[in-house]
Structures are given as C-alpha cells and as structure tokens.
C-alpha cells in the first residue's frame, strides 16, 4: 500500500475533493483524434485519466467499449504506439493504463510484466488497472510496479467478500476501483444500492475509493460522491460521444468540445455531491 498523499501522484489527485477519473480507449477512432479527445478531458477537469490499451478479447467490456477497441485496433493501435501516444500527450494529470494481462505479459524481449512496466514508467504512466488480474495472479505485476514506483489499482466487485477484500487491498495502491454493479462496462441510468454497500465495506481501507461502471451523468456522479465515493470513473458515456462523432463524421474539434463539456458536467456533479454530504466529523473523508 502506498502512503496516501505522499509522493504518489494518484493519491495526490484525490487529496483535495472528489476526483473525476475519465476513461477512453486510446487510438479510437484514430491516433490524432484520440490525442485531442484525451486532452479535452483534461481541459474539462479530469483529475486522473485512465487510458485503455486495446486488447482483442476485452472480456470485462460491454458493447460500447468493445466497439471502441475494434475501431482502435483497426486504426493500428499497438502497445508500442500506445507508449508513443502517452509520450505525445500534452496533459498535466496522472495517467493510468487500463489493459488486459496478456499485453502486459508479452511486451518486450523477456516474458513477464517487467519490460512493460519499465516502459510505462519511462513515458510517465502512474499506475495500472488490469481487469483480468485478480489478487491471486497479481504478484509479478505488483513486484514490477514496486520496482518502478508505479501503482496497481485493484477492482472491488459487489461480490467481493471480506476475505477477498483483505487479499486485494494487500496488492493495491493508488486507489481502489469500486465496481458499482455486476456485469460489464456500459452506461446505465441508475446507481445501484450495491455501490453504497461496497463503499460501506471499504470504510476501513486507507486508499481513495473511486466508483465506476455505469455512471453517465453529473447527477449520478453527485449521488455516488454523496454516498461517500472519493472519485467517479466514467468510461462508456464518454466513449459513446467518440462513437457518435465518428459515425456522424463530426469534425474532431466538435467531438472534443462535447467531451470537454461532458467532462465538466461530471466533474461539477462530483463537486456538487461532495457539497451535499452531511457534514461528517473532521478527517473522515480526507
């Protein structure tokens, strides 16, 4: 575990007020537009950005992100291009790489996660989210992250019980990704009760909790933060904007503008929810 608020850029991103953590699939629908889109999210108030490195078998993803992955792969995205992309990005917020384990495992000349993590560190990535890597299999990646000073963000699901939670927290740093509901990624219109339950279970865990899966509006962001989340993760609702722009041949700047205003809505929602919290004794949330 990292010491929250220390030199860790992810922990720092959660230090003053609720964090807005958007996700986009890198290279969707093409390299240049994707750069503009990620920069628009930063403009719109992102505190951390999750950059999806597309994998051919995205088993945790719903149709929206599956399609984004197909577009990005067809446009030529690869791990090497991904690292170039991160180096090319002109943003000032911490970046988290979200991808599946096989791409991390295969990168570089030696097998295992080390070369990937080393490269990620060299282009300025701060941490990883790996949806198909439960705590049981995370040892080698955790070790490489420790070596290069990066965070490994774990996902806590609604089905995660006490015993697993302990295992999970032991390999986690940066923040905890609280999966708001069962299923795959995708925008939906309601925030599940299970989010509140998960947050309650995590109360004793000394890492920021960011809630994701299904958040698509400022109002939902507010509800989640009001319920105690330290941050909101939003993916499909943003990828939907990219998809619409692509399908209607919208100019890149116009799509970027819509992403930026959606980002503002979500960030403001998060702040709004924070303001609505019933005042709690000093120091409970940060």
């Amino acid at each position: 575990m990292s010491d929250a608020g220390g030199s860790d850029p992810l922990a720092a991103a959660f230090a003053d007020g609720p964090a807005f953590v958007p996700y986009l699939a890198v290279g969707d629908p093409d390299y240049e537009s994707s750069l503009a889109y990620v920069e628009a999210l930063a403009e719109g108030g992102a505190d951390v950005i999750e950059l999806g490195l597309p994998f051919s078998e995205p088993i945790a993803e719903g149709p929206t992100i599956q399609n984004a992955v197909v577009r990005a792969l067809e446009a030529g995205m690869t791990p090497t291009r991904f690292f170039e992309f991160v180096a090319d990005l002109d943003v000032d917020v911490p970046l988290v790489c979200m991808t599946y384990y096989n791409l991390i495992y295969q990168f570089g000349s030696e097998q295992g996660p080390r070369p990937f993590v080393e490269r990620a560190a060299s282009v300025g990535i701060s941490g990883f989210v790996v949806p198909d890597l439960p705590a049981e299999e995370a040892g080698a990646l955790r070790e490489a992250c420790d070596e290069f000073g990066l965070d490994l963000v774990s996902i806590v699901a609604p089905t995660t019980g006490e015993d697993r939670l302990e295992k999970l927290v032991a390999v986690s740093s940066g923040y905890i990704y609280v999966q708001a509901r069962l299923g795959v990624t995708g925008a939906s219109s309601s925030v599940s009760d299970r989010t509140t339950e998960s947050l309650a279970r995590l109360e004793g865990v000394d890492l920021p909790k960011a809630v994701g899966f299904g958040i698509s509006s400022g109002e939902q962001a507010a509800t989640v933060v009001e319920a105690g989340a330290d941050g909101v993760i939003v993916g499909s609702a943003l990828v939907d904007i990219v998809a619409e722009g692509h399908e209607s041949n919208e100019p890149t700047e116009a799509t970027a503008d819509r992403l930026e205003s959606k980002a503002r809505e979500l960030k403001e929602g998060a702040l709004e929810g924070y303001g609505r919290r019933t005042p709690t004794p000093e120091g409970t949330s940060d």
Partner: peptide, 14 residues
C-alpha cells in the same frame, strides 16, 4: 493454468 478472471467472478470461482 491459473485464474485470470475479473474480480467479480472470483467469488463464484471459489
């Protein structure tokens, strides 16, 4: 071998 699956499935796999 191993168990490379999303956390949401791990309790069911256990």
């Amino acid at each position: 071998g191993g168990q490379y699956v999303p956390e949401a499935l791990m309790p069911a796999i256990e």
